[in-house]
């Protein structure tokens, strides 16, 4: 709904905080979710996401949510669906070229971003929408992606170490292991 959507942009900073908590939780839960199977939970999560974000942001379920980079103003509500707006047709006072009664989604977005902690993300050029992902859960996609990136960073750290000490790794394989570690094998010692 238009009025709730505008409320959300006015409170972009709060919604940014809420979403960050949600995302952290989903990233932390990644091992569990992955065991249950992302495929199995995709439909129900997408349904919940649609309900919540539809109410708050007039979300269209593009599946590649960028609200955190657009001041909590959903760019799919822009009649031109710009991912990097506003266009040059904005009317005096910040109204839409196509729907003169509506505030420009991107004027709202830039104002919303100015209120956010990570508001500078709006300066990043966003890619075009992948239309195949419409209807799917962006929450799961984003958290899965983040969990994978974390995993990869950990792996890279390990392999860099292993590559920096190639001989040691060969003669004493346990000093710079590259193989996957079972969960219980790590995190038992004191590091601090």
């Amino acid at each position: 709904m238009y009025r709730i959507r505008r409320f959300a942009v006015r409170h972009s900073r709060q919604f940014e905080w809420i979403y960050n908590r949600l995302e952290s939780a989903l990233v932390a839960l990644a091992p569990v979710l992955s065991r249950i199977g992302y495929n199995r939970i995709e439909r129900p999560v997408a349904l919940i996401e649609k309900g919540i974000k539809g109410l708050l942001f007039d979300c269209q379920m593009c599946g590649q949510c960028v609200l955190s980079s657009t001041g909590m103003s959903c760019p799919m509500n822009c009649p031109k669906q710009l991912r990097n707006g506003p266009c040059g047709g904005v009317r005096p006072g910040g109204f839409c070229e196509v729907k003169p009664g509506m505030r420009c989604v991107w004027v709202e977005g830039w104002n919303g971003a100015a209120r956010m902690r990570g508001g500078d993300r709006i300066r990043e050029v966003l890619p075009p929408v992948d239309r195949r992902l419409a209807g799917s859960s962006a929450w799961l996609r984003a958290s899965r992606e983040k969990a994978a990136a974390l995993h990869e960073a950990r792996e890279r750290e390990r392999s860099t170490l292993a590559n920096a000490f190639p001989t040691a790794r060969r003669i004493e394989p346990s000093t710079a292991p590259l193989a996957d570690e079972p969960a219980r094998a790590i995190g038992r010692g004191k590091t601090g």
Binding site: P86, V90, R91, V107, R123
Partner: peptide, 20 residues
Amino acid sequence: NPCVDPLEWRPDRLAKKVAA
């Protein structure tokens, strides 16, 4: 479009075009 709204953000959008 330097002379239409949002006037304050137009230079920032130009910066994005340069970055693109």
